[in-house]
Structure formats: structure tokens, C-alpha cells
Design a protein around this nucleic acid. Structure first.
Lengths: 241, 241
DNA sequence: AATGACCAAGTGATCTGATCATTTTCATGT
DNA sequence: ACATGAAAATGATCAGATCACTTGGTCATT
């Protein structure tokens, strides 16, 4: 009988996917490295090509690998992550958007506080680059690009906490789909204000003032949330019930 | 030409996966419902069986569908989610485990506070069921089962916040892999104490005392974190450098 | 009538082998 | 040195076949 007590039922595919991940780990491959061709994998594991491809699709779905037509199989950007944004998630509804922002307003301020205490060097520099890029895009009026860079800032802030799991959580809730949704709803805060607030947060983190960083981040996200709430749930006029 | 203005480069597989999700949405299928056979899908979309299977594997990886051998294709438990735990994640290292707990200790207390304000009815009842199950398992000494039910309690707590995104985040960071890791490290807090603390949190939420719920949750998780930290980073003895 | 063994249809899992499409490489010619 | 274009490597898709598992019904046994 099985020694682990568990059922040995794992399908060929489960084994395959696990083996391929193990292979990547053994070779110490990391994001962007080329892996191995589909055919050679099929040969190595003594299975047919379509089977290998199914296993690869599974890995691909979580960002563990990438399949580039005509080029090869590569290690993906999310290999080894614990929490991810659902890559198949549809553009969220307005309600879901509010929920998402509420979640961020709850999670990110404490993360900023930690970031101010830890201050990972690389992340600080990344924040500065994000701010510079944002300033540039405010000038040129590239609103779509600006929205992305602003998200990048929040992710870099989370990186500064030095906690990879926290960074993954924040990255997961700062998904880009949201940008589309914001544009659909024609929600735009004052872009210069956003930039100023981001700069203030960065300064607080740089100074190691965790309380200030937390408060500024909370105020910033609450502000965004207020704008969105106003759009999604227009304030009731008491005179017209 | 394309009406959406986006790049039309999406591969056949992207279209397939998206179409199948749309089909599920159109039919208003939800978790557990039977979908459609692989062969009929291949027929419907005029593609070969292996292609359909690749697309299904992609959906399967995010919990959008399930393939049951000999039975059929079913809608999965995570369809429509925004944030998920990486289903392919390896059992985390000790360091990663500490990070994960730190993240939970940061995120869950404010969630508990919201839960105490909102108090979703169904979630409250679920918490009670979890507590009852936990009490049972404390008696029978089923430690593995107990660890799972304790995780369930934290998930139910997050559910009570009424914010699906928050619940998804909490579920993602309360992955079961951690149980294995805890057992590997032989980390066990006092099980009766855990149960008592969970009961106290539940009571605070039930009473709508958000400050208390937050504090209790924080103390609870900090306690767990302290135990783990002690194991992973044994306190330095100054007399033996 | 209830139970259990057995069979058959439906369905997923895997294989084989081929062909098409894209990328990359590299020899060739200017 | 550079541009060109063929050739090789590689992923994408197809077609059809066979194996394995689940399920529901049949039928004999109790």
C-alpha cells in the first residue's frame, strides 16, 4: 500500500506538470530563461506531444512557463508564486470594482507602514523611476500609460516591504483590467494630485516614517475610492425619494 | 476589421478559452454544474479534440472548470475569481512560511474589523459550524483535520466581511500547503488555546465589536507567528557565538 | 422486493503521426 | 559589413484511433 497514506491516483498530467516544475527548479532556471522544446520534453518523459502540451498549458495558465511560437518554451514570470491574479478574470463589474478598491484601501496602508520600516533599496529606486515616468506621462497626457505606471508605483511600494507574499497580494489586486473598467466608467481623478500624493508617500517611506506612510496611503486610496463611489452609487438626493 | 481596436493577434487557444468561458456565463452555469463534453465542444467550435483539451487545461488551472475522467467537464469552484492561490505552488520554505504568516497578520485583523461591522449572516453560521467541527476534532485528536478546519474558520471570517475580493485574498493566503509545512516543522500551538481564541473572535464579530475583533485577530496571528518564528529562527544564545 | 454482479454506452486520457505557421539561424551574395 | 533568403528548429493544429474510468441499467441471486 501507499506509504504516504494519500491516494496514489494522481494522473499522468499531474506527474508531468510537477516533474517539469521540478526540472526547472533543479536547473535553477528563472524567469525568462529558455526551457526545453515540446518534442524533447515528450521524449524525456516518454509521453506523447499532446500530453506534454496539456501539461504546459496548465503551467502556462499560472505564469510558470511561456510558449512562444517558433521560438521555444520559456520560464514564465510567475514561477514559484503563491498568490496570483486570475489571468482569465473578466473585466470586473462596477460593484466588484468598488469591492476591489475597498480591499486595497484596507490592505495597502499597513503594507506601506512595513515598507517604511524595511525600505528595500532596490524597491525605493524603482519607486523613484515610477514617479519619474509618471511625471513624464502627466506631461504628455498619455492617460492609459499613466494609469499603468501608477499601478506600478503601488506594486513597487509593496516590494519595499521586503515581504514577497505581501508584494504578490498587492500585485494581484492591482490588476490592469481595472484600468479598462475605470475608462469605461470615465472615472478620472486629478492626475497631478495623484502624482503629488504618490510623491508624498515615497518621501514618507524614504524617511522611515511608517505612521505617515500608512496615513498618506490610506488617504490616497480613500480619495480614489470616494471618487469611484460617487460615480457608481450617485449620492441620493433626499428631496427626490 | 476588429471593432475593439485591440490587436487581433490572439491565438486560437485564447479565443477558445474565452469563448468557453463566455458559454458558461451565457448559460448561467455555476460551480459544480456539468458543462459539455470535450467532443461536443470540439464539434461546436470546429476545432480538433487536442486543441479543446489544451484550452480546457488552461481553464482548469485557474479552477474555472474541472475534468472528471469518465464523467464529463464541470464548472469549477473558482470561476470568475479575481485573486487565487497558485495551484502549482510548491510547499513553501521556512522563510516563505514566516513571510506568509506576516502577511496574514497584517491583512486579516482589519478584515476581521470589517467583518464585525458587516456580519454577513451566512458567514456567521459558517463560522459556528467551523467552531463546532474544530471542537469535535480537538476531542478526536485529528490534528490534520483540525488544521484544515482552523483555516476554514479564517476563511469564513473573511467571508463575513461581505467583500468577495477580501475573501479571495484571505483564502489565497490560507493555502493548505501550509499545513504540510507546519507538520514538517513540527509546529503545534496549543490546540485548545487556538480554539478558544477563535471562539473569542467569533463572539466579537457577533457582537459587532470591530475594534475587539481586530485586536483579537491580531493577537491570535501574532501568537502563531511567534511560535513559528521561534522554530525557524531559534533565539540566539549569546554565550555560544 | 432488495441486493449485488455484470454489462454497455458515454466520456475523458493518451497515443501516433502528420502538416502548417512562426521564429531563428546562418550561409550566401552584393 | 550588410542585406537577403533558404533551411532548420519549434510551436500550433489537425485527424483518427485506442485505452481507462464512470455511470446507469439489466438481470440473476438472495
Amino acid at each position: 500500500m501507499s506509504s504516504s497514506g494519500g491516494v496514489v491516483r494522481r494522473s499522468l498530467l499531474d506527474d508531468l506538470a510537477a516533474s517539469m516544475l521540478a526540472l526547472i527548479a533543479d536547473r535553477k532556471l528563472s524567469s525568462g530563461d529558455q526551457f526545453e522544446s515540446v518534442r524533447s520534453l515528450a521524449d524525456r518523459f516518454k509521453v506523447a506531444v499532446p500530453t506534454v502540451r496539456e501539461a504546459l498549458r496548465r503551467l502556462e495558465a499560472t505564469g510558470a512557463v511561456e510558449l512562444r511560437h517558433g521560438s521555444g518554451v520559456y520560464v514564465g514570470p510567475h514561477v514559484g508564486r503563491l498568490v496570483l491574479a486570475n489571468p482569465l478574470a473578466p473585466t470586473p463589474s462596477a460593484d466588484r470594482l468598488v469591492e476591489l478598491l475597498q480591499a486595497r484601501a484596507l490592505i495597502e496602508p499597513p503594507v506601506a507602514a512595513v515598507a517604511a520600516r524595511v525600505r528595500t533599496e532596490a524597491a525605493l529606486q524603482q519607486m523613484e523611476r515610477d514617479l519619474a515616468a509618471a511625471a513624464e506621462l502627466v506631461e504628455t497626457g498619455d492617460h492609459a500609460g499613466l494609469a499603468e505606471v501608477n499601478m506600478d508605483f503601488h506594486r513597487s511600494l509593496a516590494q519595499a516591504s521586503g515581504n514577497a507574499t505581501l508584494a504578490e497580494v498587492v500585485e494581484s489586486v492591482t490588476v490592469v483590467n481595472v484600468r479598462e473598467q475605470l475608462e469605461i466608467l470615465h472615472i478620472h481623478g486629478d492626475r497631478q494630485t495623484d502624482l503629488d500624493e504618490h510623491r508624498a508617500i515615497h518621501a514618507a517611506v524614504l524617511a522611515g516614517d511608517s505612521e505617515l506612510a500608512e496615513r498618506l496611503t490610506r488617504e490616497h486610496l480613500d480619495g480614489v475610492l470616494a471618487v469611484i463611489n460617487e460615480r457608481v452609487n450617485p449620492p441620493q438626493d433626499p428631496s427626490t425619494p
